[in-house]
Design a protein around this nucleic acid. Structure first.
Lengths: 213, 213, 213, 213
DNA sequence: GATGAATGAGATTTCATTCAT
DNA sequence: TATGAATGAAATCTCATTCAT
């Protein structure tokens, strides 16, 4: 009885979160009203406030749910003995799969959180940075064992890697890059090929001459 | 007389735009009010509406002013006979210099426009895409003349390249990457080394075997 | 069995009332929520609606419980043959003792009911007036038997008497007058001395001349 | 021009305050909406927020405007050489005249502020206390020069005096005491006669025996 | 050109009350 | 009796925009 009740309650909560993803993705966080979320979820206005203290809190929840899964995945990948290229491929793959599985959610996270320097991005800065930091560590280890060249700062490499992926997702979101399973698969490979190719020993200008001055 | 008057008028208009950059950067477009812009500019806030039709229009103006300069720069670069690596280096250099020169403006463009899939990003989609398209063309030409390998889609490469730069700027904006002239110079070189390194013929896994399945 | 059950039920009801006194006193009737009462009482907040029809009804109950005790006391006092000064002393004493015994409850009654001209004060006007009327009667009788001078309207005297006491309680509530048993005792005497002193024959300006015109 | 504009602006502000008095008095502060004030004043909703930051601020303004006039009056009265009875008569007279002149305003102050221990009363506690303190000083001086007996604490006397008046006003507000110029005049005299009579040397029980134990 | 008072639609949020279990 | 999830009307407050001067 009580268990069934609690389950039903969680269903409602979940329904609100799922509805929020859709309306945030379709209209944007600022442009949509709490009533839009409620309507989309098929629940009364106040129930959103029953489960979440505020509109902000709904987005916070969505972000943290997903981001924490990603952090766990990165940590797990990093703990293996695989080569850096494999680790980064796993991360790129995870993010692309996340998009394939729920493009609206990833759109919301990218558009409303990770780049929102004055609002949610700031709120979740520590969590966001954690992802970059772990990717940077993968690069550092690869530099230490000689797989990656040391001329590129590891933290820079981490940003470039993550930025490249996020921009590809942005391309899909904006309709600037072709979508579909085939393209998603190809993207996983291309991002690793593009970035790791540039990071690995042996790439770059044969003479190693810097040309920026 | 009349000329002086017109010049004074333009000064006011400019003062409003400059003030808008500061308040948009500091508080975010949504979080600031038109009166904040006016206060920052030291004018009555009706004047904002005299020069610009709306709050949106102020941001539109800021974005277009800068983006068009960048498009012109890319077109100019593309028209030269320099190798792709040099062209991309020039573009990366221009964007980094833009940030060095006016970090607030670049922050506003990145945070409020290029990723705002439901508002300004959508409005200016054609202009934004134009930049990616031109970068993609540089890659295509390099693939045609054998400098870049053809396995990577040119449009994908363009997104990865631009995304890497934008993410580095995001790192500076969020305080996640060290700032300063030295770092800006180094970033220009690193982004080219990282991305072009991966795009150029000869990089990547020697056997060319895809490892994603 | 049934009796024990009924007693437990009454305990719950009582617990809600007692909790309501505390939260009404601490935060004010309007500022507190029904759930605050329930939390304070340690019950689910649907139970408040089981025992009382509404939030208003809880306050109504608290007021009436206490006010009716006071009315009974006044009636009893008035039925005696004691001199007016003694009767009024008994009333003042009762009110002060009520405060000493449960300052929160008296705070609620004074702050939320007796001066609330547009809400509870209006609802309970007849009950409130009854107290003033009875005090007025005590004065009238004293005037008839020559103890009190007739120049002061009895109904006016009743208001002044009650108002003086209520203001002293207000002083304690606001922390404007020193509290403690000693002060409570002293207040009983002082209020009678002050008001009765002015009402009794022989006080006032020797010449009896009114000086207000 | 500018002066006329400023004057018109002040008129609007005044109209809002006057309207607020009427709606606060008729429906109570909590029960009325900001739109009620705006409607009553014949202005747009937002103008209330243009002149006053919040609904609370409107009431604050009303209270302070009037209370500060009273404080100034009390200070002025206290500075004279008149006997205490005359000083207190002046104060009582001022308060009664305030009620005669604008009963709604006095109703609002008494009902919504001076007894609101958890909201406005607390906010304005220092200002409210200042009035009691000054009245207490008048009593103290009278005790020092032998006009008033010293057995009654001056601060107690101040509360009793003010409470008696406020209760009389409450009587008018609730319709419990007869209203009209004649009654107002009579009240001024009666309150002084009642309270001062009890405070003056020579009143009280001939034997001076306390009867409270 | 310049000002800022005035407008009012619309947003978030609160919370008394209901009701199925 | 007892629970607390669910409801939704209603309140405050914001702020882009207009417009008379």
């Amino acid at each position: 009885m009580a268990a069934a009740k609690a389950a039903a309650s969680q269903d409602r909560r979940r329904a609100i979160l799922d509805a929020a993803v859709r309306v945030f993705a379709n209209r944007g966080f600022h442009a949509c009203r709490v009533s839009d979320i409620a309507d989309e979820a098929g629940v009364a206005y106040g129930l959103v406030y029953h489960y979440f203290g505020s509109k902000d809190s709904v987005l916070d929840t969505l972000f943290l749910e997903r981001w924490d899964v990603m952090l766990a995945m990165i940590a797990e990948v990093d703990a293996t003995e695989a080569p850096a290229r494999e680790k980064l491929r796993a991360i790129a793959s995870f993010i692309v799969e996340s998009y394939r599985h729920d493009p609206d959610l990833m759109k919301v996270i990218i558009v409303e959180v990770t780049r929102a320097a004055n609002s949610f991005g700031q709120t979740h800065l520590a969590r966001i940075r954690e992802a970059y930091r772990r990717i940077g560590e993968i690069v550092t280890k690869a530099q230490e064992n000689g797989d990656f060249k040391s001329e590129i700062d590891a933290e820079f490499a981490a940003m470039a890697f993550y930025g490249a992926i996020e921009q590809v997702l942005t391309g899909w979101i904006f309709g600037l890059l072709p979508i579909g399973d085939e393209h998603y698969e190809r993207a996983k490979w291309q991002v690793v090929e593009t970035i790791c190719g540039g990071l690995e020993v042996g790439s770059g200008r044969p003479d190693g001459v810097r040309t920026d001055h």
